[in-house]
Amino acid sequence: MTKVEKKSGQSAGVALLPYSLWSLLFILVPLVFTAYYAFTDNNFAFTTENITRFFTATSEMRGDDGVIREVRTYLVIFMRSLKLAAISTLVCLVLGYPMAYIMARAKERTQKTMVTLIMIPMWMNFLIRTYAWMTILQDTGILNGLLGKLGLGPIHIIGTETAVVIGMVYDYFPYMILPIYSIMAKMDLKLLEAARDLGCNSFSVLKRVIFPLSLPGVVSGVTMVLIPSVSTFYISQKLGNGKFFLIGDAIEGQYINQDLHFAAAIAFILMVILLVCMALVKYFTARLVRGGE
């Protein structure tokens, strides 16, 4: 190593120092604290009570059939969050995949315009976007007004799970389209031609060539939609009329009650489950990609 190289290496180390400290204090320490709070009581003595409470607390809830039953509160909330987030992610994927494909096949200038157009709604404040959907979907809202003019409806959407899904799909849709698009735009067109020359019809080109190649984009799209929609806490309050509590609402509720240890416990469990989900997604796509080869 020359003297100059050594000197510039040292100064680079100095440049990194503030960030290293910062990320230790404000990224890693908070995560440790979440676990610490999750496993302690108000006097900071060790306890597993917060975690047990998550799995065992019960309350009375009215089911779909109108019958009131005793249920495990947080497990029900958690499963509902997972279900709605999974549905939203699936809808985003089904709607977004063709869109990404169309974009990747368009002229270069059109592609750029479309990417900008898709990003624009992301720059509108998330609270206001969600609120705007509330006014559109209301029973006396714009959608029902339009349907009325066509002689249809009215339909009741606000306050249902459908409304919550619409809100989630709307808020996170660009996160699905953009990663898939950026992979597809880089795809080698010759591969598609080759597949066609070798006798593939359009469907098998899609199944055997395009889809396996676009898989990394699909994976990052799915994670980028799934994670925020599992943990959201405003959409359900506004579009679900507060009837469909999600896991994010549960955390916020405990924060408002100042039960920080239980809030930390819910956050901790959510974090662990998300980590497991992401590891699973990684594992299965790795297998899929290998299987495709």
């Binding site: 290293s20 990320s23 995560l31 604290f33 979440t34 955390i251 924060y255 920080l260």
Partner: peptide, 23 residues
């Protein structure tokens, strides 16, 4: 360093918020 830098981007906002608030 790359992994640590990725954490605030991947972690749900609500967890980032709650965990910092606890500290």
């Amino acid at each position: 360093i790359n992994t640590v830098t990725n954490i605030p981007m991947i972690n749900p906002d609500i967890i980032t918020g709650i965990s910092m608030m606890l500290v």
